[in-house]
Design a protein around this nucleic acid. Structure first.
Lengths: 145, 145
DNA sequence: CATGTTAATGCATCATTATTGCATCAATAA
DNA sequence: TTATTGATGCAATAATGATGCATTAACATG
């Protein structure tokens, strides 16, 4: 990875009070070069020989807590991770955009431009977070036919 | 369970080409008497001594495929099940209502009256299903304070 | 630049959930 | 009443989430 990118990732880690380790930089590099959210099994396949399963698990958990990445559950309940597009913080996630889960290639897209519409919920229910996953066939899979 | 209810469940099974076994009737009875979606672990606790874990798993899977129940994943990726309110069929689920996952009591409510608003998704993406889970604090937990 | 402190990692281990194969049993049709 | 087919229970395995602990690496401090 080129130097400025590395610098960028290192800044991100330091900003969140995390040590800039090889494993964390590698995970950041992979996530930032993917065009869709990345599943835990995929990451494990890619870095499994270099990073321990538990370490990867903990890195993802830490990143999520710090607001560096956000987690989306796909239709199978599998965790998928993507770098937060805008500046999320530890106590204020802004990932309330729609996700698209392709039933064919299983990819999870972050549709950053599609926001979840406001809802009229019965009084008494206090909303903290919303998670909208749309499933179907994605653009690429449609074009491939 | 009273006789007419049992008759109703049996009809539901037969209508879907399923044999009316004790285990299936029991699952239907439990699900229909709950005011919120029921998690797999909860079901296992209740019927674990009478129904094998694998059998329960297969019953839920079969029911979901036939459109008898629908499945909602809560914030932890745990499967929750509820009887479909309107007439779903094997190839046409109509469970596109909003679900509310309480972060306190962990219950999953089916907000049948709250429909998911239409979305403007990029052309090329074909939508099959939508799953909106809102999380926060539910009415009962708010009142309990 | 050497070193002490603390965070991060790797390994072992365990719990839970999802899944399959197969033998047995029960429900329904004949 | 019995044959057939579906449903169940048991054994076993895989994937994932999680914890404890010893070791290692990062980085602040002198």
């Amino acid at each position: 990875m080129e130097h400025n990118k590395t610098q960028q990732y290192e800044d991100l880690l330091v900003k969140n009070g995390l040590k800039r380790t090889g494993a964390r930089l590698q995970v950041l590099d992979i996530l930032s070069h993917r065009d869709s959210a990345t599943s835990q099994p995929y990451l494990e396949n890619v870095v499994g020989k270099e990073i321990d399963r538990v370490t990867l698990y903990r890195i993802l958990k830490t990143f999520e807590e710090k607001g560096i990445i956000h987690r989306v559950l796909d239709n199978h309940g599998t965790a998928n991770y993507a770098i937060c597009s805008n500046s999320c913080t530890e106590h204020n996630h802004h990932d309330e955009h729609v996700h698209f889960n392709c039933n064919n290639c299983l990819r999870v897209y972050c549709l950053d431009e599609v926001k979840i519409p406001a809802l009229k919920i019965e009084k008494g229910f206090k909303i903290d977070d919303m998670n909208l996953v749309v499933s179907g066939i994605c653009k690429e899979c449609n074009n491939a036919n």
